[in-house]
Amino acid sequence: MTINKILEKYPFAMSYFVENKLDVENHKEKTFQEFLDGFTHEEVEDLAMDKEELAENLEIFIDQMKEFLGIKEEVGVRSLTILPGFDKSGSPEGFNELTISTSQVISIVGPTGAGKSRLLADIEWTAQKDTPTGRSILINDELPDKKWRFSSNNKLVAQLSQNMNFVMDLTVMEFLQLHAESRLVEDVEGTIQRIIRAANSLAGEKFQLDTPVTALSGGQSRALMIADTAILSSSPIVLIDEIENAGIDRRKALNLLIDEDKIVLMATHDPTLALIADKRIIIKNGGIAKIIETTEEEKEILLKLEKMDTYIQDMRSSLRNGKTLSV
């Protein structure tokens, strides 16, 4: 097959050529092997190329991408089930089975170092009694596919945390384009518009497409990360690790993730967030000590807390807009 034909059939193969620094522009009439054979011995050495490997990898790459595109159309992850193992002392965990469905929010509480990372790693690795906790993970009530462990394009868990920053030197537009292309999205333009609209509805201050991502305020960055994760990330499960209140509407942020059919796990000790969840996981000594369902009384407390929260948020935006505050 000529390079032209390859690109016609698999447009995404271009990223393989680009990332491997193979300028195929003027060689599209050749087959990939002919193109590789065009390099002199010296060039091969200079570029640190491995011709055999490049040819082999192109095939693997195309197969992976085809599979990835196929997966997107398949029925995705509908539920995640955690079956109990043991805590650090070897005592059994205090629950029988926890199933979380898409669009559901579960909070995780417990002191730092109690075993949150381990729980998350168990989910990411789709543990089958083969991790230190002895837990098992089921996806859609079945034993999980191996792809969740071994493929770099299919990661089960996306993470959002307070410590995360943008580090790329790109504008919001370029940044989203890059992410959309890496996910092989068809309607790039439309997807970017959706993300921007969603992000702007979360952030106190709106931002433009030509703003560099590194110049966004804390709230704007958080808003963009959440909108991008909700809409563009391929991972069906999102872990939120302590998102603080500054400059972002957290309730709306959760709703956005829920609307995009994500399974949301939220590590937080903030009552306005923790009580939004239907259930909360209590982690102690490396294991899940128990699972508490949010009570009616707690839901009432949540309403009060939310009122207080809105009150503070209103004050905040009044201050931002240069108004004088009054009771």
Binding site: S15, Y16, E19, N20, E56, N57, I60, F61, Q64, S117, F150, S152, N153, K155, A158, Q159, L160, S161, N163, M164, N165, F166, V167, M168, F175, L176, L178, H179, S182, R183, S221, M225, D228, T229, L232, S233, S234, S235
Partner: peptide, 30 residues
């Protein structure tokens, strides 16, 4: 160092790694 960059950057970075070495198994470790 995935704990300090955004989810999008992690995904883009991993996909770039995958296109230069599709054979390897890619893992994120903190």
């Amino acid at each position: 160092k995935g704990d300090i960059v955004s989810q999008a950057e992690r995904e883009v970075f991993a996909s770039k790694v995958n296109s230069v070495n599709p054979k390897a198994m890619t893992m994120h470790i903190n």
